[in-house]
Amino acid sequence: MAFTDSIGAATIDGLAYVGGLARLTGGAAKAVFISPFQGKRFHMSRAIHQAMAVGVEALPITSLISFFIGAILAVNAAYELRKFGALHLVASAVAVSMTRELGPLMTAVVVIGRSGSSFAAEIGTMKVNEEIDAMETMALEPISFLVAPKFLAMILMVPCLTAWADFMGVLGGGAFGLAAASFTWGSYIQATLEALIAHDILTGLLKAMFFGLVITAVGCQEGFSTGLGSEQVGRSTTSAVVKSIFAVVMVDLVSTTIFYLTAPR
């Protein structure tokens, strides 16, 4: 009885949490896509500021990580493929796994660490300092003021970062291909382009957009649910990272399944 009760309670908590994410996302989407046409102001300068922080400032670390991930993929692919004398397939193996899965996923991990956590810390600190209350008494909506700019920045910048990560991953794979297999840059790029189809790239980028969306929602929700006291901000930040990683994997699972079912054969 107690066991089923606690499962029931956990399910209700989980649903309430997802409901909160949906409410935040809906509010932010409304502030970005609908309210500006009803004469309400959208905070474009704040969105641009966020886009710089989320996207542009993440370029160096994303480049580095994806380059090495591309190289690691190439090594792992080569390890199997050489048994069949099929080293020339390394390029396509890297291209497909990078664009379909690891480009979006590694980018999401970087973005969670850099931006998801900072959303929770920023909003959590504001909560603790009564700044969120102050906003409400000034008739400023925290969702349109704080969440919406982050939301727009993330759904645009995470796919852009992912596209760049895909490219850097291919370069990383190429570096291995040149060093250990008999590729030239020309033949490696050629092989990559032949292996890639638009569907792979686009589903990867679409997935990245969803990742951006859930990372924003989880980071902001953790911030808003920060309790009293500054030590709670640290707790929110940590939990934003853990929950975002989980949420990204869940979104990945669901969207990959849907893409598989709807893929051209």
Partner: peptide, 20 residues
Amino acid sequence: RDELRKGIGMSFQSGALFGS
């Protein structure tokens, strides 16, 4: 409520200035 709030001002105990 937001409409009416434009006619009131509140000073919080901690100040609650936007730190950024």
